Simulated scan of single mutants.
Amino acid sequence: MRVFIILMLACFSVCINAQNDTVFNEGNTLYNQGKYAEAIKKYEALLDKNEHAVALYFNLANAHYKLNNISPSVYYFEKAKLLSTDDKDIENNLVFAQNMTVDAIDTLPEVGFSRIFKDIVNTFSSDSWAKLAISGILAFVLFFLLYHFTSATSQKRVAFVISVLGFLIAVFSLVIAFQKNNLEIKNNPAIVFAQESRVKADPNNTSEEVFRLHEGTKVQVLESYENWCKIEIADKTTGWIPSEDVKLLKFFR
Rank of each mutant, 00 (worst) to 15 (best):
E244D: 10
C11A: 14
L132Y: 11
Q33M: 08
A63Q: 08
A170P: 05
R253F: 07
K180A: 04
N69C: 11
N99Y: 01
D89N: 15
G136A: 10
V175P: 11
A10R: 14
Y57L: 04
S71I: 02
T123R: 11
L142S: 14
N227Y: 06
S154T: 07
I241S: 08
E226H: 13
C229H: 15
Q195V: 09
V23N: 09
K230Y: 07
A39Y: 01
H148M: 13
V246G: 11
K35N: 12
D202Y: 10
T107Q: 13
D21G: 02
L132H: 07
Q19V: 01
K247W: 12
A133Y: 05
E244W: 01
V210C: 07
L248I: 08
A10N: 12
K156A: 04
F211N: 07
E208I: 13
N20D: 13
G166V: 03
F211R: 08
L56W: 02
Y147W: 15
I169L: 14
N69V: 07
K247F: 07
L108N: 11
T237V: 02
A53L: 12
A63H: 00
A80H: 13
S197H: 06
L132M: 14
D103L: 04
N188K: 07
D21C: 04
Y31G: 02
P72C: 10
V23T: 15
F58V: 01
T238M: 12
W228I: 04
V54A: 04
L60K: 02
E196G: 00
S128L: 12
K230F: 13
D103C: 02
D245I: 01
L56C: 00
F96M: 08
E226R: 12
A45S: 15
Y36R: 12
R253V: 01
R198E: 13
V171W: 14
A97T: 03
N32P: 00
E78V: 03
N50G: 04
Q179C: 04
N62I: 02
F113R: 05
S151Y: 13
V3W: 11
H52Q: 09
T217H: 02
E215G: 15
S207W: 15
E215V: 03
L56N: 00
R198S: 08
D235Q: 11
V210T: 13
Q19N: 12
S114K: 10
E91P: 00
A152E: 15
Y36M: 12
T123N: 02
L183Y: 05
V3R: 03
N182Q: 14
S128W: 03
I6Q: 08
S224I: 12
N25L: 11
A177F: 03
V221R: 09
F167Q: 03
P189A: 04
L248G: 06
S163F: 11
E44A: 01
I241A: 03
F251C: 06
S84V: 14
F77I: 00
E51W: 03
G34M: 06
N93D: 05
L94T: 02
T238Y: 13
A97P: 00
L248D: 09
L174A: 13
I90C: 07
S126T: 01
Q179Y: 05
G216I: 11
T29G: 07
S243F: 02
S71E: 09
M8C: 11
